[in-house]
Write a protein that binds this DNA or RNA. Structure first.
Lengths: 206, 206, 206, 206
DNA sequence: AATGAATGAGAGTTCATTCAT
DNA sequence: GATGAATGAACTCTCATTCAT
């Protein structure tokens, strides 16, 4: 959420003081997800968002400072959804390799259900590069830490955890795009298997 | 270039007939690379491009149908530059693994020299998703074929070549972004080593 | 105040019935003076005024019909303050010339303490020219009468009292702007002396 | 004019390169004078100005950076008209007192013909106080110098030239407002006489 | 081939005012 | 008496595109 406990939104606007205002803000955010996801940041217009949310144009500015502000809140929001989703699905893993498999599967299922994710994240690059880089940095940090730990415990071969983290993020991302977004394969399971196989054993014949 | 052998540009405009026209078109394209790369497709304006190219606004429409048309020509152009660059650097490879190493290095060096690449490619997603997907599909196809061949020859372990291709593209892409674009590491060589090590042997401890 | 003895405000709204209402109205008026004075009528917004006064937007319309209404009340209010101030300081004068000196000094000191006066009065011209002209007409009438009387008593040379009144108002006004508002002189006393000297004896060498 | 010889307008926009552009800019400026003069800066809208000038909205921004930019150009322009007018009419004066009379007359006739002057100058105070103060400072400087010279030559009594300058500007201004703008007197000549008499000999009976 | 003035639809944003609570 | 969410018209400003020269 873009509301901190201090009682103000990140944008400096007062948060809604009533339940009604809370509802309105949420429907605006939902509408923004739809419209930004379908048309992209620049093609989407505030008026489309407010129409979708069934409120007047001016209402928008009660809850968000400007177009960029909703967008940031939205990316924030989706990032949190994704992290929650991943955490939940990866938790049961008993090994790092199993965590990779579960994480990849979870990511692919998330993308399948949130087709808007890619457009929104990609757009963030041109809205403000730091939104985009920050988004991936979050995952890279988490990943790095997990991989370091796994290496310490002898579960994975030693190696640069950060580089590996970025490799794994790249893999998830492109597989998600290709197989969850663009052309779904006959069996997603097989895709995951093939990817995890490569991640686990590498390409080289022995 | 966006000119086919049939002698017409993709946009249906006649190609420049004189050397002077040729020059103008090229300076427009160069200007477009600069402006789109710095500001992004939507924030950039035709008038900025013509100013950068030092021609009048009307001149633009002598060479390109519209804003989207230059953009497509530009992506085309960069794609070709990149392919040429990669081909040249990967050619000497004597094994698939060596090809991976050389390809990754070549990609990273290209990105370092063409910082605009990412913004332009990323923007293409919201200009027209098919530009973006087509861009990666080209590489995925090439990769797949090469990996299949390598597997046939017993050089790499058998496995789904297409899935692996997308994994490798994802890896290159994210490493390029992280290490060539955002924060250059002390030693790029080590990054390449770590990545190639993972690609070659996988994560799993033996 | 914009309240007449008939018990209604000029705007047709009922005046506050309780002490609490009275307080609220006053803090609104104080806030209006601050905000209009700092930003000007058109740039200032009702919401700034209510924020400054620490009341909700809707509260404003309990005490004033609309934006113009507060503004009129405010000009009214300042005019009264000014008249009271002048009356008090000019009273002790024993001659018309002394009254000029005291009046000018009092005006300059008032302006020094109420820097907002000019912006508000000047704005009134474009809100409604009659506010502005009415404001000065009040002073012109008072002045004219006094000058006529002084002429009758042989204290000042005979001459068109009205023209002289407007000249004197113009002098006060511009001296106030120049010396009390824009750039305070080393000695205000000397400014007053020079002005009164000119008013008293004119420019011409004898 | 707001064009310097260096070939750029004050606002940083390129000046029109063709005669047609020149014409358009001028009709825009004329329209601005009319609309700003009638409605005031804030109430006037760019679209009214362009309609009055019979050009499209976008055309406006070819010649002026924004609303404030035309306004500044306009004030500049009127100031120059006024100065030219005054210079021409005051030139024949053979004494400082005669110069006062001619200057005042010229100012009153200018105001009668340019009723918009006051609103525009007054508005400048809330657009940007320095436009307004700069406007009067120009006259104050000229006046001061002339009065100093006249005092040196024994033509007027010695005294603070600057204070006198501001007094005289105030007088002109308020007389212009009262007698040229608001309510024309039966005889303007008599008004001038009365004012010049006061300026010349002061109020005090001898 | 090249120019640059002109267009006008449409974007983001503000704000005086209303009204249900 | 007081609140603050909601409204929507109106504004300023941008820019892809056209066209007369």
């Amino acid at each position: 959420m873009s509301q901190t406990e201090s009682g103000r939104t990140d944008s400096g606007l007062c948060p809604p003081k009533t339940a009604r205002g809370q509802k309105t803000r949420e429907s605006l955010l939902r509408a923004a997800e739809k419209v930004f996801g379908e048309k992209g940041y620049y093609v989407a217009s505030i008026s489309e968002i407010t129409q979708e949310a069934k409120v007047a144009m001016g209402t928008f500015y009660l809850y968000f400072k400007d177009k960029e502000d909703v967008f940031r809140a939205l990316v924030q929001h989706m990032l949190e959804l994704l992290r929650t989703h991943l955490r939940k699905h990866v938790a049961p893993a008993t090994s790092q390799i199993e965590a990779e498999r579960l994480g990849l599967k979870a990511f692919l299922s998330f993308v399948s259900r949130h087709k808007n994710l890619y457009r929104i994240v990609l757009d963030s690059y041109s809205v403000d590069e730091t939104i985009y880089s920050g988004y991936f940095q979050v995952f890279a940090d988490l990943y790095s830490r997990r991989l370091s730990r796994a290496a310490e415990q002898g579960e994975v071969r030693p190696g640069d955890a950060e580089v590996r983290a970025w490799c794994l993020i790249g893999i998830s991302n492109f597989l998600g795009m290709r197989y969850a977004l663009w052309k779904r394969p006959a069996s997603m399971e097989k895709v995951v298997d093939a990817a995890v196989d490569m991640i686990t054993h590498g390409l080289q014949a022995r």
